[in-house]
Write a protein that binds this DNA or RNA. Sequence first.
DNA 1: GCAAGGTC
Length: 547
Amino acid sequence: MAYGGGGGGGGGSGGRAIRVLNVAEKPSVAKAVSGFLSKNQQGGLRVRDGRSRYNRIFEFNHTINGQPCHMSFTSVTGHLMELDFDDRFRRWHSCDPVDLYHASVRKFVPEDKSDIRRTLEEEARKCQWLILWLDCDREGENIAFEVIEVCTQANRNLNIWRARFSALIEREIQNSLQNLVRPNQLFADAVDLRQEIDLRIGASFTRFQTMFLRDAFMINLATDDRNLVISYGPCQFPTLGFVVERYWENQSHEAEEFWTINCTHNTDEGTANFKWMRGHFFDYTCAAIVYEMCIQEPTVTVTEIKEQEKLKYPPLPLSTLELEKRASRFFHMSPAHTMKVAEDLYQAGFISYPRTETDRFSEKTDLRAIVFEQQGHPLWGSYAQLLLNPEAGLWRNPSSGRRDDKAHPPIHPTRFSPGESGWSRDHHRLYELVVRHFLACVSQPAKAAETSVEIDIAGETFSSSGRVIHAKNYLDVYTFESWGGSMIPTYTLGQQFMPTTLTLDSGVTRPPPLLSEADLLTCMDKALGQMQRCMSTYRSCLIDIMQ
DNA sequence: GCAAGGTC
């Protein structure tokens, strides 16, 4: 890769330090990265204030691929720019809501971000290079181009680079600085498009339905001090749809009585509960007739015995969606809170970047090194040691999911911690989940022997099964999941006995439960997958047509 | 007065 060259005497300036402006997405990242990069550098780390009181500027010396650099490191706070309609469309009655689909829009730096803009302009004028340290997701790429726009307006000759990193740990940061790439315009464009669609649909529908419903229900603004805006956004509606759909199913459910036949058998080895293979009948008379036949001739004959080894596999490597679902299931943490806590852990360097779709590890990842780090933990350290011991036979290369966002690895621990004093209970729990999940991924599945027995009573079939766990394996460390064992007595084929009980039982159908947050995430993910498949079909159709 | 995405 050819560094320098392009802008205002980069690498070619004969050993003289070039001035580099570095920009992160948030102040904490600017501080953390500056901390790593200024280590062991002459002059250490200096800090000064910029125009914005939250976004300070860190300064230090560094060398990029042999080129001495003077680094200034500042930050933005998320998006620098906003998208909105031109002023003449801003008032609600200025146009028909449908006109908002072609009204002109503009992207600009809002008033409360103008101090950050000034800092960027002033610093950009002094620099030859610009390195973008924004989060490595689509929004980050879009913010990168917002920063580029502001900076290049102040200095046309900037040589612009993108640092890519998935964890706020020193090794990763040093590595990304020595392997700079160019920013990706296509990712940024995708976000611009999403912003425009959200704005046009949201504003036009919200104005339309608010005004329409006000008139329809004759709500008088003068006497009603509620600020009634009935908002519509492309993001809310699928979510609301799933929630409401399930609610309606739940409400319209009519409980229905059903009947089933159960059989139990006690021996000195234990009890077997046999379930009727027909499930249940909604018609009492039918069930009663069959039951009557069984009672007349209640002798049981064992007709089939199946024994097989059953495996329960560890989960796939951890993506954001799974992290949210599991934190919701295991700890009742809301997805929003989970992501806040995960972000804290990421910023302190304990886990990798928590926003990832990837559920497969790259072959280059040194999985054993990650396990190695965890050996000293009081709770799971001994399990980590066992994993690394080849004689234990516990290790297994992790399964690979089908998703790869090509930007970040699955969420995994990046730094050992026995727990930090500043952590809340949820920080502890989430770190524990990430570590235990990772250790589970590289472990053997749990193994059990399952026996299923089928019996015949008067021509009706019943079945029961028992399970004996032979090796818990990953379940020893993944304590959030369990796999119950159950014993049933030993039977032989053709054996005959009398049932201990043979009963006709009734039950009532239950409505489907309201959607949990974890269920909702699953619905959204499924719908996203369907949409992506549609899009890809559509895309190949277009390509066909064009050829 | 409107969206959704960043972040303080």
